[in-house]
Structure formats: C-alpha cells, structure tokens
C-alpha cells in the first residue's frame, strides 16, 4: 500500500513549496483528538525522521510516521474546490465514520 497524491494535489503542493522557498516534501499523519477520535495532520516537511516511511508521488516526497501509517495507508490526497472554499481532502479507505465536518474520524 502507499499514500499518494492526485495530480491536482501534487500541482498545488509543488506550487506551495516553491513559494515557501524550502521543504523536502509534505508530511501526512494523524493525531488523536477531535470529536471522532482522530484528526489529520498535513504539514510541510523540512527534514525526514529516520523512522519515517517515504513515498514518492508525482515527483514529490510524502512522509508518514510509522504510528500514523496504519490509519491512513491507501489514502489519496486530493485538492478540491467547493464554492469559494478550496483545499486538500484525504480520501482514506480506512475510515468507518467521520464527524460532519470531515476533520476528524474513527477507523
């Protein structure tokens, strides 16, 4: 399995990293919080940790720490526009339920 980006997500991530001026890729993860137990983490990555799992997608490095991996393995990160709002969306096959807002979930 792997964690991947859609082409649209990869384009936006590359653009953001270029404008930011530094970073080796992005880090995806989960943390325990939120109304449904877990929440996504989406951050720029400046350095890889030794235990990180590193995936390559559309030429971009996607870093995931081993504790997060079981919860998001198989996830595809997409970039979406909804009306005026736009941003990244986790298409995660592991989730059983999520809160109405989609920011937190259970597996």
């Amino acid at each position: 399995m792997a964690v991947t980006l859609t082409e649209s997500a990869a384009k936006h991530v590359s653009n953001y990293i270029a404008k930011r001026g530094k970073g080796i890729g992005i880090r995806l993860g989960v943390k325990t919080s939120g109304c449904s137990g877990m929440a996504y983490k989406l951050e720029f990555a400046d350095a890889a940790e030794p235990e990180d799992q590193v995936f390559e997608s559309h030429g971009l490095k996607v870093l995931v720490d081993p504790r997060s991996l079981p919860y998001i393995d198989g996830t595809e990160l997409d970039y979406a526009k909804e009306g005026l709002n736009e941003g990244f969306r986790f298409n995660n096959p592991n989730i059983k339920d999520q809160c109405g807002c989609g920011e937190s979930f259970t597996v």
Partner: peptide, 17 residues
Amino acid sequence: MALLQISEPGQSAAPHE
C-alpha cells in the same frame, strides 16, 4: 467535508480550531 490547508511543521491545528 472540510478542506485542509498545509501547515508549518508541528503547527497542524486541532479539528474545529
């Protein structure tokens, strides 16, 4: 479904925050 933005390392906001 909320749409997320990329945060600075270590700065991911908690849901609804």
